[in-house]
Design a protein around this nucleic acid. Structure first.
Lengths: 344, 344
DNA sequence: GTGAAAGCGCTAACAC
DNA sequence: GTGTTAGCGCTTTCAC
């Protein structure tokens, strides 16, 4: 069995507080006793009980992360970035996967609160954030990534400029002589859907292209919805023709391509394509897919530093700086074969 | 601020223990007081402090998972399987990424112990498991996945039959008329390396093919090592010719293909290829890669059920059943274009 | 059926 | 420089 401070204190004939002092080496301890204690700790292989510590200190040294899907590279790369920074500060991470379910997300928010995480990083899929009230009222920092919350902004956030992301994508297609450009995008209830659609509209308007609302399809980020949306577009092609498509997520991109292939259209010759967040770890995806990319690692590091600052503030004043930070990072466009038919 | 049992007790004029009773609804409580208490709990939006609970109960309801790389689909799919089962039992998961570093792994084992996880699921990259002694002596179940520990087997495990995996892969190549088959495999210090190499040898021996030791390359599971190993094989090709290659991990497979392409060899015409754990989420990898596949979701669920059983045992006897379980699951072979040149 | 009280393992005043 | 003690929030035994 594991020994506690009390056990060791009894054994060594010193008080618990003395041992606690050398374990945490804060106050000065007589070098002689310190040595005795250190040997005792080693002998008993003392491992502090973090649970007891957390209870006493009212802080667990843990931050919670909730994402919709840990098998998406986009999220795992962010998590790694976060981990790189927080690990150095001895802050542990508790990771939860909401499986794109608002209900599960809410449950996790409660669960994590009960576990008294020191801060929360949230890639929300929900419109309702009442579960965050308890974080607010207990002064626990919450930082949004990927998606912003609906109404009030009592939280920090780190996202990319989704509007600009779409401008990059659509302008690129326009430069490649496309004017009839369709889009498959997430629900406008989420900022990632709303802002990306916005950018699409703006790009077209800037080039005086009249927007055909039939070329706009709303998906749910999953592969099958990309497939279904693409099918719908293709079936309407007679009345609402298009030569290019812009798709707002990785899995929907793969689904859409599946549909395109089923109808024997060629990419990019018949349909030029720009995706979003496409990670080709294999380097073998054919055709290479032009895609909007986000700086995942940097997002992760930025979020982590924000967390650290918030935690530092809290230790100081006891009240957080009420000015919330909304950090907006730059997306980029990775150009591959799928969009390039300038030579036709 | 958050209210505690004490706060609410004072407010309602009942004792702390009564409230605790209705919160956990174990003992019978007078329906009238129960009602009063329930209303009070709602009014104050009571959220139990899991830290205090854990300290008192000497159990956190949390299991730790340590994997070498959360961006590998192999691991995230396992984690999802685990989560599906444990989530239903209200057991939370703490996830740690050791980044393929034995040092980091050891640190996490200590950290997780200090956080008093109730059980540990470990995909080890280390040869030294001294850090697990403390788990052993405190009766905390440890379950290995993917790799087995070096010497003693005081732990449960859930792995696939790696030997058989190689038989599937190599026999398939032999059936496609290959006899000079190279291999890139993980370090023989790990069971995933050792057993996969073993199976490779056995398959060749069973077909009376003399093994050319020069065709055996040891990598470290990362992409670049696949690339380097493949390059080495190609450069020795004059003296040690081969027409097919079997590669023991996903990222090494991609690295190896990169090298093959650099030398302008064709797959499968010049070099037929079988990979391991290749996940093609896009469905667009060209050529399609024949690969050994593991039942990740099922592995996850199996591990989770083992955890649950161990925890149940512990609650009962206080001593765990000393018979350790080593569950071995079946790999399968997913056949695609990369290995198929039977028609040549 | 309910309350009082001990105690999980630790930290941090406060005394000396 | 070190020990004593209270208490973090909770569960659970033991009285009544």
């Amino acid at each position: 069995m594991n020994s506690t401070l009390k056990d060791i204190a009894r054994e060594l004939g010193v008080s618990v507080s003395t041992i606690s002092r050398v374990v945490n080496n804060k106050t000065y301890v007589n070098p002689k006793t310190r040595k005795i204690v250190l040997e005792g700790l080693k002998k008993f292989n003392y491992m502090p009980n973090q649970v007891a510590r957390s209870l006493k200190k009212q802080s667990t040294g843990t931050v919670g992360i909730v994402v919709p899907d840990i098998s998406e590279n986009f999220f795992t790369e962010i998590i790694k970035g976060i981990d790189e920074v927080l690990g150095k500060k001895d802050i542990s991470i508790v990771l939860a996967d909401s499986s794109e379910s608002a209900q599960k997300e809410t449950n996790y928010l409660k669960l994590l609160y009960q576990n008294r995480i020191d801060a929360l990083i949230l890639a929300t899929v929900s419109k309702n954030h009442d579960a965050l009230d308890i974080y607010n009222s207990n002064n626990i920092p919450v930082i949004f990534i990927d998606n912003m919350p609906d109404n009030d902004h009592n939280f920090d956030s780190v996202i990319i400029d989704n509007n600009k992301a779409s401008l990059l994508a659509v302008n690129h297609l326009i430069e490649n002589n496309h004017r009839d450009i369709a889009i498959i995008v997430g629900s406008p209830d989420e900022t990632t859907g709303y802002e990306r659609l916005n950018g699409y509209r703006r790009a077209l308007e800037q080039h005086n292209i009249i927007i055909d609302e039939h070329l706009i399809q709303y998906g749910n980020y999953k592969e099958d919805s990309g497939y279904q949306c693409m099918k719908a577009l293709i079936q309407n092609r007679k009345d609402h023709p298009f030569t290019a498509i812009y798709i707002g997520s990785e899995m929907m991109t793969y689904g859409a391509i599946k549909a395109i292939k089923e109808y024997d259209f060629r990419i990019p010759e018949d349909i030029a394509l720009v995706g979003f967040d496409v990670h080709d770890k294999s380097g073998l995806i054919t055709p290479g897919i032009t895609s909007v990319r986000q700086p995942e690692n940097y997002i992760g590091k930025t979020v982590a530093n924000l967390v650290i600052n918030r935690l530092k503030e809290k230790k100081g004043n006891s009240h957080m700086n009420p000015v919330y930070q909304h950090i907006v990072l730059e997306p980029s466009l990775e150009i591959r074969k799928s969009s390039n038919n300038r030579d036709l």
